[in-house]
């Protein structure tokens, strides 16, 4: 089931289209956040799109993913309807979680999206557990688990990697190393600079890859997915990337912890532009083609916003729904 090493022209354009969709969607989120259509914390993946797009291009539709709160692009690339994602960010009834999850908690069972999680590192054991289950039932699915480089300092990360290696679980751990937590650089938080080396402690396969290069990510994750699917073995992949925005929409772009120059320098490596240039130099797409793709994804994003905007808020009756799998009668009379 391995992907062919060389992609068709259409497949390349499709990858580019996904990168563009992710980028335009996130930009629109920033705008909607400013207009207060989106509330709460809102973490954008602008600059990091190549990691999710490249990684997921190796998956079958029924494979699973877990991610952190920085999850919009992951959900859309994995197959969620952008309108339902935007509706969730707007807190509307038509959202993926009927407005109850919001930006940090995107779940879509139909597309194998097992959540955005907002406790750093807490989803790593969950992903490990799903991999355990697919192996236990001899199912073919693999699990991709995305998290930031700061999460590797969480105890749960180590406990999970140990078990995954010990039990040979089909899980690919993908560190989106954007160099910072909120404002703490990896140098100031981690005793080891090379995150991939952490795998040594568990005798686990690992790779370090340029996370700004969608094809490199695709290749690297493709190997790991193949290993997981064929031999049921885990891999730790460190994708070195960079976020162009602040940690969340409540943060400035650089703040005290990094310089403007650093951000500008990194922007030169913009994974979307870089991939377009790559394709255009190979004659796969030209400027007009790019514009057409852009127009296409803009229409999708516009429709998503329109859909979200027109959607109703969840009804008050939803407040007590889905607390338990049985209909929930609050146990006290004093509830509103």
């Amino acid at each position: 089931m391995d992907r062919p090493a060389t992609l068709s022209k259409e497949a390349h354009v499709e990858l580019l289209r996904k990168l563009l969709l992710g980028r335009r969607f996130e930009e629109r989120c920033a705008e909607m956040y400013a207009l207060q259509k989106i509330g709460g914390f809102c973490h954008l993946a602008i600059g990091q799109e190549a990691v999710s797009v490249g990684a997921m291009s190796t998956l079958e539709p029924d494979d699973y993913i877990f991610c952190s709160y920085r999850d919009h692009v992951h959900a859309i690339v994995k197959g969620s309807d952008p309108g339902r994602v935007m509706a969730e960010l707007f807190g509307r009834d038509t959202g993926l979680s009927h407005g109850k999850g919001g930006s940090m908690h995107l779940f879509d069972a139909d597309h194998g999206i097992l959540g955005g999680h907002a406790i750093v590192g807490a989803h790593i054991p969950l992903a490990t557990g799903v991999a355990f289950a697919t192996k236990y039932e001899s199912r073919p699915q693999v699990v991709l688990c995305f998290f930031g480089e700061a999460a590797v300092n969480i105890g749960a990360f180590h406990e999970s990697l140990n078990m995954a290696a010990l039990w040979k679980l089909p899980c690919v751990y993908i560190v989106e190393n954007n160099r910072y937590g909120m404002g703490t650089s990896i140098e100031r938080a981690s005793a080891i600079y090379d995150v991939a080396q952490r795998a040594c402690a568990y005798d686990m396969a690992s790779e370090t890859v340029d996370g700004m290069d969608v094809l490199a990510v695709r290749e690297s994750v493709g190997r790991a997915v193949a290993l997981a699917r064929r031999e049921s073995k885990p891999t730790l992949i460190e994708a070195r990337c960079y976020r162009f925005m602040g940690h969340s929409m409540s943060d400035p772009v650089h703040g005290h912890y990094r310089t403007k120059e650093e951000v500008e320098e990194q922007k030169l490596k913009d994974p979307v532009r870089r991939y377009f240039q790559q394709l255009s130099s190979q004659g796969i797409i030209d400027q007009a083609g790019l514009e057409q793709l852009n127009a296409e994804v803009r229409t999708i994003v516009d429709a998503a916003v329109e859909f979200a905007d027109a959607s109703p808020e969840p009804p008050a009756s939803a407040l007590y729904e889905d607390v338990y799998s049985e209909p929930y009668g609050p146990y006290t009379r004093s509830q509103p």
Binding site: R92, P314, T332
Partner: peptide, 10 residues
Amino acid sequence: DVPMPYAKNL
């Protein structure tokens, strides 16, 4: 007596 919902009205 619920996990906090995200939607503003809820």
